[in-house]
Design a protein around this nucleic acid. Structure first.
Lengths: 300, 300
DNA sequence: CACATCCATGCCGCCAGGTTATGAACGCAG
DNA sequence: CTGCGTTCATAACCTGGCGGCATGGATGTG
């Protein structure tokens, strides 16, 4: 018997949530669509998977059996998918490099140039991840190596090598009173609402909220954003201020946005990150070497 | 990314066959349909899986990666499916009993009655398997226990208990010269074409061709059939003769068909069969006990 | 008793998969 | 060289299924 993995995901969602309605909104489909799908799954299997009631959908015994197996199947499929895509990238001589916002700043093109010198015929694919995925796809095998700002969650199980350090500054709406100042102390911003990344980013979020430097004074969240564009727009619209690396002033200038130097806050670091397993991959090693080469002296 | 397992089966077939056209006929779909599906799979993955040429479809490197993973996924799904159906059967108090043709003859209803006495509230589901599946679904987990004629392929890894033994006879078209005889020696039939089961049945097929008793004189196959109906029809139409258990004369009488006693051939045995793992299942044990009870004396 | 919250149903538009028929490229035999 | 058979690709068409909206029915709650 054949099924679509989508149908399995539907089933898993309903099994987890215990409610058609809630599962439906989590899956971004209408509730009737889910009703139909689940009923069809039951019909195809010839098995009743749920007992319906006013208070939701409860798994039956065979439903539990299916629910026990489905996550493993989906994980297996995702893994095969990644392996296939990885093989395709290698076969096409593509190195997939993940990053979140500005990657390694002005260093980035130099790194790519150095890598291309080492590996003629290879191409570098720069892939910007969303902030809800703090490793830019590295943990899921969607990229081979990543340029990330530290710290980020899951950092411990990955190989990290710091490339550069730069001060953090503050992003203000140009209309903000402090925007006129030449330099600002972080403490002056403690009561300002902050435009923050999504909660999944864990310590990365804390870092950009300046939690450590607030010594217990909690940050007030003014808006939650998924990527640099949303983030700048939110600041420009006055939802709050934000911390940023100094280079953001060069990479993300924008009308209505003002960057100002900040004191009383630690600098930001950018590192090159790869899974421990990739240590054996000569192409990844070459990329890391290229990063090192661009950092250590030999400036143009 | 989502896929239908059907699509994965398509891919696996093409990968194995190396030809779109051949895979298409193996899958019973048209070649254009396969073309479209495979191209769509490639498009969804963003990966070229095959290199096309006049002489077929050859896997690319990423194609090989996918081909390596897909069989495991499909096997995993089939297993989850079986577990779910098995759980459903247990939950509904259904014991699924497989058989191929006549099961345990007149004993069958008595066995079911005895089982129902031991397990009130349980229902027995008798499932006739096709001859291309010699264990009637036992090996695939489609049934919990089976009533089968011995020997059959794969017998060694299953628990078998002989229930009854009965002579084998011959099935002839009524118009056959030998149909007039009261008793026939097997040797007289050596040159007759035989209506045989499909080749997958292995030693089961050999047994019903009488290979052992032919001492090297090979059987001539007159027709290949999948189930009792096809088999009797083939005999009635004169495609050949066939061996059968004596009870077939009672269970499968049919105009144009004559059963005659046979000498010079070993008798047939029926056994109750279950996987070693089912030894722990009290319901299966009760069924086996019921079989034993009906065999040992205590006739009505 | 009205209301909120479940899931189920009916209707409709659209897309994806299948089929048949046909085309294009190539190898092979006469 | 030419016709035939093989391969995969393309085009036109039909249908079934999926998803969306609106609504209904059952059940507990203020």
């Amino acid at each position: 018997m054949d099924v679509d993995t989508r149908l399995l995901r539907y089933f898993a969602a309903v099994a987890e949530e215990g409610h058609l309605t809630r599962a439906a909104q989590r899956l971004y489909v209408s509730q009737p669509a889910l009703t139909k799908q689940i009923r069809q799954l039951e019909a195809q299997l010839g098995v009743q998977l749920f007992t319906r009631s006013r208070s939701g959908m409860a798994l039956t015994e065979p439903g539990r059996a299916l629910a026990a197996g489905v996550p493993g199947l989906l994980a297996g499929w995702d893994e095969v998918l990644r392996d296939t895509r990885g093989a395709a990238a290698r076969a096409e001589r593509v190195l997939r490099v993940g990053f979140l916002a500005s990657a390694a700043n002005e260093l980035t093109p130099r790194i790519i140039a150095a890598f291309t010198r080492r590996r003629p015929g290879w191409r570098v694919d720069m892939r910007q991840g969303s902030w809800s995925e703090p490793t830019a796809g590295l943990r899921d095998g969607d990229v081979d190596v990543a340029l990330l700002r530290l710290p980020f969650p899951g950092q411990e199980e990955l190989r990290v090598e710091v490339l550069l350090t730069e001060p953090r500054c503050v992003v203000l709406p140009s209309s903000h009173p402090l925007a006129a100042r030449d330099e600002i102390a972080f403490q002056e911003l403690w009561d300002e609402p902050v435009v923050a990344p999504v909660p999944e980013t864990g310590q990365w979020r804390d870092y950009w909220l300046g939690t450590e430097e607030r010594v217990g004074h909690p940050a007030r969240i003014g808006a939650v954003t998924e990527n640099p564009d949303e983030w700048l727009t939110a600041v420009a619209n006055g939802y709050g201020i934000a911390l940023a690396p100094e280079s953001a002033a060069r990479f993300y200038p924008r009308p209505g946005i003002t960057y100002r130097p900040l004191t009383g806050i630690s600098p930001s670091q950018v590192g090159v990150v790869r899974p421990a397993a990739a240590e054996a991959d000569p192409v990844v090693r070459d990329f890391v070497s290229s990063c090192r080469e661009c950092v250590t002296g030999e400036e143009p």
